[in-house]
């Protein structure tokens, strides 16, 4: 049996990496990757609790499935936006995104 705290520390590490990725990358797709890391960290927590907390078994898995589905949806929309932005500005540097007008 793996102690719960080990899994939680792993997920905390993934979360920190995701935050660092979001903070340091200027490339919009790099930021998206950071978001994926953060979502995965949250998901690991859900699944770990679903495994170890008796009353949370179903809810934890349902939450995790939702997160996976919504992450995929988010990536699709974000990429469509990024591609549009690239078409208008010829760059994906988020520092250039200073206007609301397309």
């Amino acid at each position: 049996m793996i102690p719960l705290s080990y899994i939680l520390i792993l997920s905390a590490f993934l979360f920190a990496c995701g935050v660092l990725c979001i903070a340091t990358k200027r490339n919009a797709i790099g930021i998206l990757m950071g978001v994926e890391l953060v979502l995965n960290a949250a998901n690991i927590n859900f699944v770990a609790f679903a495994r170890y907390v008796p009353g949370f078994q179903m809810d934890g898995q349902v939450f995790a499935v939702m997160v996976i589905v919504l992450a995929a949806a988010e990536a699709a929309v974000a990429l469509a936006i990024i591609l549009n932005f690239y078409n208008n500005r010829n760059t994906v540097d988020v520092d250039e995104a200073t206007q609301l007008r397309g």
Binding site: S5, A12, A16, V19, L20
Partner: peptide, 14 residues
């Protein structure tokens, strides 16, 4: 920032 977040979360987990 990342280190601070990691430290806080690890503290709670431990």
């Amino acid at each position: 920032v990342a280190l601070a977040i990691f430290a806080a979360l690890a503290q709670v987990s431990l």
